[in-house]
């Protein structure tokens, strides 16, 4: 043989490893852990610089970011609440009050969307919490299921201007 047998064995070993890696990456299904995400963005659609003090009767403007990593298309509902400071959902329990608004969005796998939201704050001065919960439509039983994902923002409402 023109090439050394040991060199040939190394080349064959590299070919076997490359082949196994190629088969596992291209043929076998890749199943990462499915998850969905919700994020809170400011009026300009950026992280940070959130409103903390707002006069009564002014408009609260925010953006909600939703990301789908479930491995399939999903229909999400974002339930928005404006509640007294301290009343928050958890990963397993949602707020048992009527939302002030709901936003619907359909996302393909690994898709994301930024949903604008605004509400006029006709509330007396005080401390409030903006809460957005992420719900997912379950097609098998035609109902929305709480994903356990939520975001919140505390803000103070002061006396109206003028």
């Amino acid at each position: 043989m023109i090439i050394d047998e040991e060199v040939f064995a190394v080349i064959i070993a590299i070919a076997i490893v490359t082949s196994a890696l190629g088969v596992s990456l291209s043929v076998l299904p890749r199943r990462g852990e499915p998850f969905e995400a919700i994020g809170l963005l400011n009026e300009k659609g950026l992280i940070g610089d959130y409103p903390s003090v707002l006069p009564a009767n002014s408009t609260l403007r925010l953006n909600i970011y939703v990301y789908n990593h479930d491995g399939k298309a999903e229909l999400f509902m974002v339930k928005i609440f404006i509640v007294e400071r301290g009343i928050l959902p958890s990963n397993t329990t949602w707020l048992n009050t009527t939302p002030v608004d709901t936003l619907l969005v359909v996302l393909s796998d690994q898709g994301n969307s930024t949903l604008p939201f605004e509400a006029r704050l006709s509330v007396p001065p005080g401390q409030y919490a903006f809460v957005a919960e992420l719900w997912r439509l379950e097609p098998t039983n035609s109902s929305f299921i709480y994903t356990g994902r939520w975001v919140h923002l505390y803000f103070n409402v002061t006396a109206p201007l003028g």
Partner: peptide
Amino acid sequence: ASALLVVHPH
């Protein structure tokens, strides 16, 4: 105040 928030839930 909660009832007066000017957004229309649907």
